[in-house]
Design a protein around this nucleic acid. Structure first.
Length: 747
RNA sequence: GUCCGGUUAGCUCAGCUGGUAGAGCGCUACAUUGACAUUGUAGAGGUCACAGGUUCAAGUCCUGUAUCGGACACCA
């Protein structure tokens, strides 16, 4: 390198004379970055910032709800990912971070329906499917700019040229293709099974969308009739009109004599036929040790009915109302329960009534009490074996036979996917082991519609067609249901890269390097991406899983509207600057563990941004009107300072390697403030007054080195203030116009 | 019920393969025309939940207890 040109003498820009003002810089800087094109790895290669065959670093952004707004959780996610992405880019990796938004099917449709109900007093059925979908599209178009501009305001260096929306044309086609391929392999099937029905949302939901709430319930012990030999216990009296058997344990001495007997009774106006069966699944010690079997309204009972070939009358409908004749007719289940209790009392059949704690299944989205109902639905078979034509997953051979469940286990146990926090690996494997068929059909309108058509043929039989386009001939009608939103999300790592086309992007960036997301969607999303990527590509979707925790308030409480403790990232950024918001979210956050945010903390880091500002001001002032040769005879003390700086860079690197961005941040913070500002700058003041020019030059050189290194190290964490300062540095100090693509300090 | 975590300064948390405790914020006192009051210096404050064990040596490893939290399952 050359000596600094005297015409490029460092001046102290006027801008440093007042405190750092984030508002003055943030929008401008983001535009500058975005216009530079460097968020796109292709541009980085073309402009020589990244070498053609550089190591790849790729990840997809977990797409936020397209109609939503930024909250602290998504701000944390964007901050962590942007830190890793900027770090990788500065390290010369071919770095791709794909932005996207999610349609949030149920939530979005519910929101639009509510508005229409309020403003026009109409239901979705009044409007019809087409019109409702048109309204939803309009709503999405109106809303999406909010979230997109908020994502930019964070400073996220996302490659917007590859932006994807779960419901855009490319993704929709890819989802159809995926369904058809899985159907043709026999992994997707239609079956009549007990599903979790949400009467409030009027749709099925998957097992993972259930939230258990503990409530008090009454456990009733009773007999079906005076001459029925066995008493049974239940909390759901109203379902007993749907009973077809009483199951007892085969070894239970009390009931052995009755096994095989059958009884006809009229129970609360409903004639029922009860067979006494022996089944291992019954616990002798619970209740009376005898279980009233209601095949149509309980998962376990459905399975018992399978084993004993029992009829399965349905007595509750989709609105959670009774469908039987008599006194229960059309009553809500809760009312019917009381009615049955009254009837039992009237007829002297009630033996005992006891308060117990019970876990009630509720729907995560609507809060409705889940009603198990038998329904004809679409499922993914996780146990059926299929052949993997081509596998890049360690421990899974090409052309081997495997089930989705096994694939999901092996992808992790074989080391194809590793978890930054090991305990999530255990949670994952535990879940995968107990996986059951995944119900993927939903009875709403907004979403990826199931590409299956039906037709009743001349013999009165139903024909089924599954394909990308509707069949040409007459009389076909499409399945009205749409897919579980997680079905399309599960394909996200590769549909965003152009699949099913074999694009260059797909070859270059898949498997992605990393997925970074909240641990609350480990099963919903992370696990299912592993499933789908394995099935369609024979690849893992990502090599590393990094899970972040929940963002809580300063006292560790969940952030919620009712507590009124919401801290809005956008408000906070206006007050203290986005850099302060970003770094406060990251500092003190351990991977996988819930973290805390408070306004005090954010304010503290605004001080830090300003400290940096003043460090820069001092350093540039000290260098003013001075030429600093780039090769220089350094004094011993200055050599020591530089080797300490190298040690800092190494420490930061090793924290990055361990995905401990929190520790990396703290290490730099500590150095910048308490070592550089408090000590090195202080001791430099007299040194710079020295009459020996060698001493002065040596020190000036060191100060410049530290400043440049610190700006680089801090850039991933506080991109705005560091770039703002960088823009004021004299050219000879810089290896790049933009700090965004400057070279990461060498160790 | 099963499986995971946590329990370290007033608060929020670090502390890797064991070597007599750290940070940030807060608090106290002092300083102040100095790059920065969005500051500096100094300081107070911890038998590292409890009880055993292994070891020359234990927040750090093992066992158990208490307590808080999470995931999963679920009894009808």
């Amino acid at each position: 390198m050359n000596e600094i040109n005297t015409e490029n003498k460092p001046n102290v820009p006027e801008i440093f004379l007042k405190p750092y003002d984030p508002a003055e810089h943030e929008v401008k800087l983001y535009k500058m970055w975005e216009n530079s094109g460097f968020f796109n790895p292709d541009v980085c290669v073309n402009k020589g910032v990244t070498s053609e065959n550089a190591e790849v670093f790729s990840l997809v952004l977990p797409p936020p709800n397209v109609t939503g707004e930024l909250h602290m959780g998504s701000a944390l996610m964007l901050a962590i990912e942007d830190i890793m992405v900027r770090h990788a880019r500065m390290n010369g990796k071919k770095t791709l971070w794909i932005p996207g938004t999610d349609s949030a099917a149920i939530a979005t449709q519910a929101r639009v329906e509510k508005d229409i109900q309020k403003n026009e007093k109409k239901t979705r059925h009044d409007l019809g499917r087409e019109e409702l979908l048109r309204r939803i599209d309009i709503f999405v178009e109106e809303k999406k700019n909010t979230i997109l501009s908020q994502m930019r305001s964070i400073g996220a260096s996302l490659d917007w040229s590859r932006y994807a929306y779960t419901m855009d044309k490319e993704r929709y086609q890819a989802v159809m293709e995926a369904f058809v391929r899985m159907y043709n392999t026999g992994l997707i099937y239609r079956g009549n099974r007990i599903v979790n029905w949400d009467p409030k949302g009027q749709t099925t939901i998957s097992d993972d969308e259930i939230v258990y709430e503990e409530r008090k319930a009454k456990l009733y012990t009773f007999k079906y009739s005076q001459d029925f030999p066995i008493a049974i216990a239940t909390t759901r009296l109203e379902t007993k009109v749907g009973d077809t058997a009483v199951a007892v344990h085969p070894d239970d001495e009390r009931y052995k004599q009755f096994i095989g007997q059958e009884y006809d009774v009229v129970f609360c106006d409903v004639p029922i036929h009860i067979k006494i069966v022996a089944d291992e699944s019954v616990e002798k010690d619970f209740g009376t040790g005898a279980l009233g079997v209601t095949p149509a309204h309980s998962q376990i009972d459905w399975e018992i009915a399978d084993r004993h070939n029992l009829p399965r009358p349905q007595v509750i409908n989709e609105y959670a109302k009774m469908t039987v004749a008599g006194r229960l007719n059309n009553l809500k289940t809760t009312d019917a329960r009381e009615e049955v209790a009254n009837w039992l009392k009237e007829n002297n059949l009630l033996i005992n009534e006891e308060e117990i704690n019970q876990n009630v299944s509720t729907a995560e989205r609507t809060g409705g009490i889940v009603e198990p109902l038998p329904k004809l639905q679409w499922f993914i078979d996780v146990d059926k074996k299929f052949t993997v034509p081509h596998s890049e997953i360690p421990s899974i051979d090409s052309n081997s036979e495997i089930s989705l469940k096994e694939l999901m286990e092996k992808a992790v146990t074989g080391g194809g996917v590793s978890f930054v926090t090991e305990r999530f690996e255990k949670t994952y494997l535990h879940w995968a082991k107990n996986l059951r068929p995944w119900c993927i059909s939903r009875q709403i309108w907004f979403g990826h519609r199931i590409p299956v058509w039906y037709k009743t043929n001349t013999e009165g039989k139903e024909e089924i067609y599954c394909g990308l386009e509707a069949p040409q001939s007459e009389g076909w009608y499409q399945d009205p249901d749409v897919l579980d939103t997680w079905f399309s999300s599960a394909l996200w790592t590769f549909t965003t890269l152009g699949w099913p086309n074999q694009t260059t992007d797909l070859k270059t960036y898949h498997p992605t390097t990393l997925i970074e997301t909240g641990h609350d969607i480990l099963f919903f999303w992370v696990a299912r991406m592993i499933m789908m990527s394995g099935f369609f590509l024979g690849q893992v979707p990502f090599k590393t899983v990094y899970m972040h925790g929940l963002v809580r308030d300063g006292q560790g409480r969940k952030i919620s509207k009712s507590l009124g403790n919401n801290i809005d990232p956008v408000d906070m950024a206006q007050k203290y600057g986005m850099d302060a918001v970003r770094i406060s979210l990251v500092m003190g956050m351990t991977p996988g563990t819930d973290s805390k945010i408070s306004e005090d903390k954010i304010r503290g880091y605004k001080h830090f941004a300003n400290k940096l500002w003043n460090i820069s001001r001092f350093t540039l002032t000290s260098l003013n009107n001075t030429d600093i040769p780039t090769t220089i005879e350094l004094k011993e003390a200055d050599k020591a300072i530089l080797s300490e700086l190298n040690a800092l860079t190494s420490a930061v690197e090793s924290h990055f390697a361990n995905y401990r961005v929190d520790l990396a941040g703290e290490t730099i913070y500590q150095y910048a403030w308490h070592r550089f500002a408090d000590e090195i700058i202080e001791e430099s003041k007299p040194i710079l007054q020295s009459t020996d020019p060698q001493i002065v030059k040596s020190r000036q050189y060191v100060l410049k080195e530290i400043l440049v290194t610190l700006l680089k190290l801090l850039h991933p964490f506080m991109p705005f203030v560091t770039e703002a300062i960088w823009q004021e540095l004299p050219k000879p100090y810089k290896d790049s116009e933009l700090l965004l693509v400057a070279k990461w300090p060498k160790q």
